[in-house]
Design a protein around this nucleic acid. Structure first.
Length: 1133
RNA sequence: GCUCAAGUGGCGGAAUUGGUAGACGCGCUGGAUUCAAAAUCCAGUGACUUUGGUCGUGUGGGUUCGAUUCCCACCUUGAGUACCA
């Protein structure tokens, strides 16, 4: 029987499936090993040969580990929520679930053909309700957690509420919104339930907030930072704008430091670690406070800001009906409680306030309600909330509500408040973050982001117009414009000054769009001598540039280096080097209370809402405007059916189209929207989760994927622990891989998973690019009639074989000068023979550029020859094309490496390769292509090498049956004779090499060592069982089908999958002599054979005595002879 | 701009701690087999060359008896990032 890959591969794939050969057990005496691939998004295009590269590598490793006696978990699944299926649904109306189903079936068929050892019983699909049930469950856990900086981990939200009730907000050290809110325990208890919910929401690890988001109008959704490449969407390349929206966010920022620290403990590629480090962007420095010097605006009416005055004016003009009605009643109730309308308290304008009763009456539903409530509570006021409807319907009820809610404070408290009122006008403070506090004496101005809150409060009357104009102009500019135009320096002076915290000097306050509102505090202290941007700004606006560096030349550029320069002109810092100066300045800042050392991170919280249909629904409903979690026992909240997958007409996300999509708290079921007025039915969250939700924990689900009671059982989690080897693309560095690490750490904190990092080792496989083929056509302006100088328009299309062409200086292909006359004449002959009026014309100019036309790579053979007939039939427009062939009647194409893509006709499908060469050839070839991590081009022609290797391997186990006439038939035959020394040497050399190669993930080199082994054993005519039995196990991880076939022929009834990996025995490689390279001045000239136990001196003597050495030296005496025993001899002449 | 990775025959790529540069494969050349083709097998294949050699791992320096490997500077390509204070 000859090597028949089709039959063998079919048989064994069936065998594996029927016997569940690769099913992993959750309890075993063997040590565990978990090999994971990044699961694919099942796209409509199916797999091309580039996709399985990583899967083949991981499969080899998984099979190798099985041979080595491990209980291997090697699962596979689908990341099946996502945009393409939804975009397709929008275009065609097909339900994404359906197309996803079809695509998955294609993927599965394609994957099965390659012979992977996946345990399919553990398959997961992120879009399946059985799976996303647990994604929703994790969301609930995040919602019910806050980050306690004191314990440095996530804790249950109940512990936060307990501290609030016990000690108020001061005792809480949490990661939450930067705005300082403080309230006493007493105040906390007095807050309404809703108020408390609002406060707690700001501490949760997933929270709702009005955030500036990246809005993509074309996709009608928001995008995360890592989903945007160069200012446009990663998918589709649509423009992205900034927009404020209420969104769910994930507090990944709480984990910044731990995500950074964790990188130390995992074996991941350095470039990937670097890019995560970069993305987290830790910078060490200090916060510094600058007081704004009073000016005519900030001084006006004490604490009342300009903004507030404007607001009051407007408020009083537009008082609502309810408000004026209530004011009439309150005003007339003379004597009892004196209320004031729209009076200022701190930064806020109250609706109604009674100063002596410390009572406030407010209409609920204000945007800044939480901040107001906090402030009022801190000041000791009690707040009664009322609604417009209440007032209109039952004003007397409202008045009694106000009276009941009123406190009657003690005298002492009233006095305290009075004192506070007398206190001086609070000074406006600008906080800045800087990494170079040591250069603080070089500050000559400050710059605020145009969006900074203080801008409107400090700008002088004189500058207001210019400032407003500038703010408007920057708001208009899109993020992309701002990015594209880094060079233009713009800004406006606010007219205000700050006081330098050390020198007390006046420092101008500017605004400029080079300062970003969402990094640090949105304000910088500008040190033009030490920062190029500040320098450019100062030069542009003619601001002073004081030099605080010893001996630095700052006439042209800023001095940005840290080390090696000492600080100058800086009072107590002068003469100090960077590190010392940093220590001292931070000490001083803290001592004087004007700043403190601080670490800042670039990592932002991740927006978690998407205005899409095809994603996980949130397990969230809204009650009284506040988000509530649906009890976990009701999960999954399944996606509702919708008519259209587009946003609703009133701009709600696609889920708003659902007619049955609301939460009935009594019946615990999703019911019709029409019952929403029934008091027990609540609106559900209409956003869905982003693509990275499902992929942030799938590796844990594989451990126990069929569990309906838990996300995964504790036993399964404890047994498998983490992924031992994770293989996937580097493009997920700052997306999936960072989010997954974040969730893992969170789940670890909450005691759900046993380890803090989910993958010990990670390898990035490179991309396989395509080798496009081009036929070169000469373009239309090429034909002229030599007699009339007229251009001939009705021409044929000509293609010219690649060997007639050369590249010109601009990289375009033109006809090679030496071959020009031949080509030109050939074309002339062809044309004139077809049309009489084209006699005597010139068809080509030497500098004529050829247009490269993509031809499908299937028409091209290994020698780059085009199947011209197939090409002509491929496209109507080339049917009558003429071809200028080589002398041997072949037509050559040009080659160019490009990304594999349908539009470039260079896509090679694994199905076609499996059909023609077999899965074993495909697997070997993909590995043989080059190092796993590297990107490398695919060229189908090379695969014949590995196929002939497999045939040679087959032949080692077979002999030609002479009794069969005609076609040569081979029959299985191995001998039980003892192997020779030579044969054992070949085997053990190969065992050693393959063992090392797999350990180093150097799969390409082990394929070549297989080839060497088979070539050598063939030369030795070896067919000994002793050798061949071990050889087949060695090959089995790479080419499992042929290995199984030969293994069964060798007499085994079981699969080769768990056969013991051959053990290397060094004794077979012991040599007695060495062929020493003899080099002269480091250049090898010839070799000499010496025994390995010969001494240095003897070797030196023998080498010098050799006539070849004498010939090299030509009579000169060698200056020095270096002998490295077992390695080399070098003679210095 | 910054960060990282990589530059070796016609092509994909080998070369363990510095020790015979180009393993293995593709392609190419010649030969055997064949009516012929495919397949298979054998030999050759870095460049130059007076056939004895000489030069060769992006460029220029350095360290070393010896450098693809280590150090410095530069060039090119690819990836990530983008005013991060």
């Amino acid at each position: 029987m000859n090597y028949d890959h089709k039959r063998i591969e079919n048989d064994w794939q069936k065998f594996w499936a029927e016997n569940e050969t690769f099913k992993a057990s959750n309890n075993s005496d063997k040590p565990k090993y978990y090999v994971l691939d990044m699961f694919p998004y099942p796209s409509g295009a199916g797999l091309h040969v580039g996709h399985p590269l990583g899967y083949i590598a991981s499969d080899i490793y998984a099979r190798y580990k099985r041979h080595k006696g491990f209980n291997v978990l090697h699962p596979q699944g689908y990341d099946s929520f996502g945009l393409p299926a939804e975009q397709y649904a929008i275009q065609t109306g097909q339900h994404p679930a359906k197309t996803t189903e079809v695509n998955i079936a294609t993927y599965r068929r394609q994957l099965d053909r390659i012979g992977f050892s996946f345990d399919w019983s553990r398959e997961v699909r992120t879009s399946s309700p059985d799976y996303y049930k647990w994604t929703q469950w994790i969301f609930i856990q995040l919602f019910n957690s806050w980050y306690n900086k004191d314990s440095d981990k996530a804790e249950d939200i109940a512990t936060l509420e307990a501290i609030f009730a016990e000690d108020g907000s001061k005792k809480v050290n949490a990661v939450c919104d930067d705005e300082i809110r403080s309230f006493t325990a007493a105040a906390w208890k007095k807050f309404s339930k809703k108020k408390q919910q609002e406060i707690v929401l700001q501490y949760r690890l997933t929270y709702l907030s009005d955030t500036e988001v990246n809005w993509c109008p074309a996709l009608a959704t928001v995008l995360a930072n890592d989903e945007i490449i160069n200012g446009v969407s990663e998918r589709g390349g649509h423009p992205v704008v900034r927009k404020k929206m209420t969104q769910w966010s994930m507090r990944i920022s709480a984990y910044s430091q731990r995500l950074l620290d964790g990188l130390q403990n995992i074996d991941w590629p350095q470039p990937l670690k670097d890019s995560q480090t970069n993305w987290i962007g830790r910078s060490q420095g200090a916060m510094v406070s600058f007081n704004v010097l009073p000016n005519e605006v900030t001084q006006e009416k004490g604490t009342i800001s300009y903004k507030a005055i404007e607001e009051i004016k407007e408020l009083r003009l537009n008082t609502s009906k309810a408000s004026s009605l209530l004011w009439d009643v309150l005003r007339k109730k003379k004597g009892a409680v004196k209320f004031r309308q729209q009076y200022i308290l701190g930064d806020f304008i109250t609706d109604f306030v009674s100063f002596n009763k410390k009572a406030i009456v407010e209409f609920s539903g204000k945007k800044d309600e939480i901040e107001r409530a906090n402030f009022f509570a801190t000041e000791g006021y009690s707040v009664t909330y009322i609604s417009e409807e209440e007032v209109l319907e039952n004003i007397h009820g409202v008045v009694s509500k106000i009276n009941n809610g009123m406190q009657f404070p003690k005298i002492a408290e009233i006095q305290k408040v009075a004192k506070k009122k007398i206190k001086a006008v609070p000074v406006k403070v600008i906080d800045v973050f800087t990494t170079r506090p040591d250069t603080i004496f070089g500050v000559s101005f400050m710059t605020l982001a145009p969006e900074h809150v203080l801008v409107s409060q400090i700008t002088t009357h004189k500058q207001r117009k210019a400032v407003n104009k500038y703010i408007k102009a920057t708001a208009k500019r899109s993020e992309r414009d701002r990015m594209a135009d880094v060079k233009t320096i713009s800004g406006v002076f606010t007219g205000a000054y700050a006081e330098h915290p050390f020198t007390g000097e006046k420092v101008q306050i500017w605004i400029g769009d080079y300062v970003l509102a969402n990094y640090g505090t949105g304000a910088v202290m500008a040190v033009p001598c030490g920062d190029q941007r500040d320098y450019d700004f100062a030069k542009n606006f003619d601001i002073e540039i004081p030099n605080v560096f010893e001996g630095a030349d700052i006439s042209e550029v800023a001095h940005e280096g840290k080390e090696g320069t000492k600080i100058a002109n800086s009072d107590f810092l002068s003469g100090l080097p960077y590190k010392k100066a940093m220590k001292i300045i931070i000490f001083e800042l803290e001592k004087r209370g004007v700043g403190y050392g601080k670490i800042n991170y670039r990592l932002r919280d991740a927006v978690f809402s998407r205005q899409r249909y095809w994603g996980e629904p949130f397990p969230v409903y809204y009650k009284d405007g506040m988000p509530q979690m649906i009890d976990a026992k009701h999960l999954p909240i399944t996606l509702p059916e919708v008519e259209k997958y587009l946003p609703t007409e009133d701009g709600k996300p696609p889920l708003g189209n659902a007619t049955e999509w609301a939460w009935d708290a009594n019946k615990n079921a999703v019911v019709g929207n029409d019952k929403i007025d029934n008091k027990t039915v609540f609106a559900l969250e209409l956003n869905t989760m982003p693509g990275w939700a499902g992929s942030s924990w799938y590796f844990s689900r594989y451990m126990d994927s069929q569990n309906t009671e838990e996300f995964a059982s504790k036993e399964a989690l404890d047994y498998w622990q983490d992924v031992d080897l994770y293989i996937g693309g580097s493009e997920h560095a700052t997306g999936h891989l960072l989010y997954a690490r974040f969730w893992q750490k969170f789940l670890f904190d909450r005691g759900i998973v046993p380890v803090e990092e989910f993958a010990k080792k990670l390898i990035n496989q490179g991309m396989i690019t395509g080798t496009s083929a081009f036929a070169y056509r000469f373009s239309s302006e090429s034909a002229y009639n030599n007699d009339t100088e007229d251009e001939i328009t009705e021409r044929s299309v000509f293609f010219i074989s690649f060997d007639y062409l050369k590249k010109n200086d601009s990289g375009q292909y033109v006809i090679d000068d030496e071959k020009f006359s031949f080509v030109s004449e050939t074309i002339s002959k062809k044309v004139s023979s077809s049309n009489a009026k084209w006699k005597n014309h010139k068809l080509l100019k030497t500098e004529e550029q050829m247009s490269p036309i993509h031809t499908d790579v299937v028409f091209v053979n290994a020698s780059d020859e085009l199947d011209v007939e197939a090409f002509k039939n491929w496209r109507e427009e080339y049917k009558d094309a003429e071809f200028i062939f080589e002398e041997d009647r072949t037509f050559k194409v040009g080659r160019e490496v490009e990304k594999m893509s349908k539009s470039k006709y260079n896509v090679v499908s694994p199905d076609a390769i499996c059909e023609e060469y077999g899965a074993d050839s495909l697997r070997l070839f993909e590995m043989f292509l080059g190092p796993l991590e590297q990107s490398k081009p695919w060229k189908t022609s090379g695969i014949s090498g590995v196929l002939s290797f497999l045939k040679k391997l087959w032949k080692l186990y077979h002999v030609i049956d002479a009794s069969v006439e005609g076609d040569q038939e081979s029959v299985f035959l191995v001998s039980d004779e003892k192997a020779t020394k030579e044969e054992l040497k070949v085997l053990h050399k190969t065992i050693k090499k393959v063992d090392e190669d797999i350990a180093n993930f150097s799969f390409n080199t082990s394929v070549s060592s297989f080839m060497i082994a088979v070539n050598e054993l063939t030369a030795l005519k070896c067919n000994k069982r002793e050798i061949l039995e071990k050889l087949v196990v060695l090959v089995s991880p790479y080419a499992p089908h042929i290995a199984e076939e030969l293994w069964s022929k060798l007499g085994s009834k079981d699969s080769i999958a768990t056969a013991e990996f051959p053990v290397f025995d060094a004794s077979h490689l012991v040599e007695s002599s060495k062929n020493y390279p003899i080099s002269f001045n480091g250049k090898m000239r010839f070799t000499l054979e010496f025994s390995l136990d010969m001494s240095k001196e003897d070797i030196e003597k023998a080498v010098l005595a050799d006539e070849k050495t004498q010939a090299q030296l030509q009579g000169r005496a060698p200056k020095k002879v270096i002998v490295v025993p077992g390695k080399i001899v070098n003679i210095v002449g």
